[in-house]
């Protein structure tokens, strides 16, 4: 029974939203919007509470155990401080909340994002090797795209952007579309398996 009810709810809502997609009748639109807007918003709000509580609990326990204590304390301060700032002064432009956001969170996130540049360099150094003919072709295409995305591409040969565009629009796009079709079909079969109840792992197991 513990598994049967969620499975029924899943199947019912799956069927309703599937059918509503094909209807432009006001009643069907209303059902569709109620499910996709109201229900999602309500579930989303509750999941935030679940997430925040879990985060605080896990980090408090880690602080008690002395595990990575400085990191956990910083995380907990952040999780407590931001809602307080938002509740007292609001979140509009110029508020303390926005000040912290713009002057602490934005630079920190930009820093983590910028690590990508370093990792691209190290991954290129280590991974992009002409081990075989196919790898060599891939390498050639990568070099062409890299040159074309910088200003020097036009200076070396004015047809480089055109050649890179050809690679992007033909071989690369064909491969991408084939993979996308495979992913689309995989998603579709997984969805049908879930809706008809063949796939039950998402409920926490087979029983």
């Amino acid at each position: 029974m513990r598994r049967r009810i969620p499975q029924l709810v899943c199947g019912l809502f799956g069927l309703v939203t599937f059918l509503c997609y094909f209807s432009s009748h006001p009643i069907a639109r209303k059902i569709y919007l109620t499910v996709t807007l109201d229900y999602w918003q309500i579930i989303f709000a509750f999941t935030l509470i679940v997430g925040a509580l879990s985060f605080v609990r896990v980090n408090l326990r880690a602080v008690e155990r002395g595990e990575d204590r400085p990191y956990k304390i910083v995380s907990l301060i952040g999780v407590v401080l931001m809602p307080i700032l938002a509740l007292i002064w609001g979140i509009r432009g110029g508020s303390p909340f926005m000040w912290v956001f713009e002057n602490i969170q934005v630079p920190m996130q930009a820093t983590v994002f910028s690590l990508l540049a370093f990792f691209v360099a190290s991954a290129s150094y280590r991974g992009f090797r002409a081990r075989s003919l196919q790898a060599a072709i891939l390498l050639g295409a990568a070099l062409l795209i890299l040159i074309s995305r910088s200003s020097i591409g036009d200076l070396i040969w004015d047809r480089i952007p055109e050649a890179a565009e050809w690679v992007r629009s033909n071989p690369a796009m064909s491969a991408r579309r084939a993979i996308l079709i495979g992913i689309g079909l995989g998603s579709l079969t997984t969805s049908v398996r879930v809706l008809v109840g063949i796939e039950r792992t998402w409920l926490g197991g087979e029983k």
Partner: peptide, 24 residues
């Protein structure tokens, strides 16, 4: 914000929208 209260401007509309037939 209560989207369930949306004023549905489209008062007509078919139970089955024929433009979605190929997808269906």
């Amino acid at each position: 914000f209560y989207p369930v209260q949306l004023v549905l401007l489209n008062t007509g509309g078919a139970w089955f929208d024929l433009s979605t037939l190929p997808v269906f």
